[in-house]
Amino acid sequence: MNIFRLSGDVCHLVAIIILFLKIWRSKSCAGISGKSQLLFALVFTTRYLDLFTAFISIYNTVMKVVFLVLAYATVSLIYFRFRKSYDSESDSFRVEFLLVPVAGLSFLENYSFTPLEILWTFSIYLESVAILPQLFMITKTGEAESITTHYLFFLGLYRTLYLANWVWRYHEEGFFDQIAVVSGVVQTIFYCDFFYLYFTRVLRGSGKMTLP
């Protein structure tokens, strides 16, 4: 464990909590892509199947449970409790265009052809594109509430810190997980455009982020 990975995991947890609390307290999921949250719940489900078969550490187990619980709790807020405020009209990204290539690739490019490993690979590839419906929804509505942009900022920060974690682990331990790194780089690139808008608009105190 290193400071980059630990702070990355904390940023990831903060992002998920920010989103959950925003929906819970505002009793609305307007502007939130339910599809992205469904994809993230699928990412955690397919990645953490080893929760009961492989014990890494208390921290690892606890974080996996917390991520799973919060992911499904957020999905249930969006699709059940506050479904009247769910803007399915704007949340129109065709997720099948993500799921099919990701599933196909996880069968082609993986470390070992076992069910658990293919599902883990699927979750890694899926995570790199899971935010696209949310980013697409923001471009479609042309705006995002500032709390939503803070959620995206912490998600992007988590991914950026994981890149630093991999540089550190390669330098310190010679560790290099090619599938995770390539997928992680692709995922972080998707946040670059958002980061630009975030730093030039939201942090300038303009509150909402409105797209040009």
């Binding site: 990975r5 492989a54 996996k64 470390y111 070992s112 490993e117 883990w120 997980d177």
Partner: peptide, 10 residues
């Protein structure tokens, strides 16, 4: 090879 790969990252 179909060995189990241990993934220690979240």
């Amino acid at each position: 090879a179909d060995e189990e790969v241990a993934h220690d990252e979240l």
